[in-house]
């Protein structure tokens, strides 16, 4: 595969390390430390960390350009064809309204 890096152009996928679903950007926040062990917190982290849509089709996912510019990327890829539809720097996606579109 070739990843269309937004800064560097096409780079071989072997330079990258894959993590998984880009919903991992949406880490639940715990503002009150007293809530760390609450059922609601554990449910939220459990769903965040463990449960996946795992779609057969368009999937937003995280790749790290380890043997390159060390950037984390959000790649939008079709898991049935491997076609890549979009690629963006994760730092630009994080904090944006990613959560809404991923769920």
């Amino acid at each position: 595969m070739q990843i269309p890096h937004p800064l560097l152009g096409l780079r071989d996928a072997s330079e990258f390390v894959y993590l998984g679903d880009a919903s991992l950007l949406n880490r639940p926040s715990v503002d009150d430390p007293a809530e760390l062990g609450s059922d609601a917190t554990l449910d939220a982290f459990h769903e965040y960390l463990h449960l996946r849509h795992n779609p057969a089709g368009v999937h937003k996912e995280l790749w790290f350009h380890e043997q390159g510019d060390r950037s984390w990327l959000v790649v939008t890829r079709d898991t049935t064809t491997h076609e890549i539809l979009d690629c963006a720097l994760a730092r630009d996606v994080a904090g944006a309204s990613f959560g809404a579109e991923s769920t």
């Binding site: 996928a13 894959y18 057969a56 049935t80």
Partner: peptide
């Protein structure tokens, strides 16, 4: 191969 896929084929690396 290490990435999500339903394509039943892999790549060279």
């Amino acid at each position: 191969d290490g990435y999500n896929s339903y394509a039943q084929r892999g790549n060279l690396p």
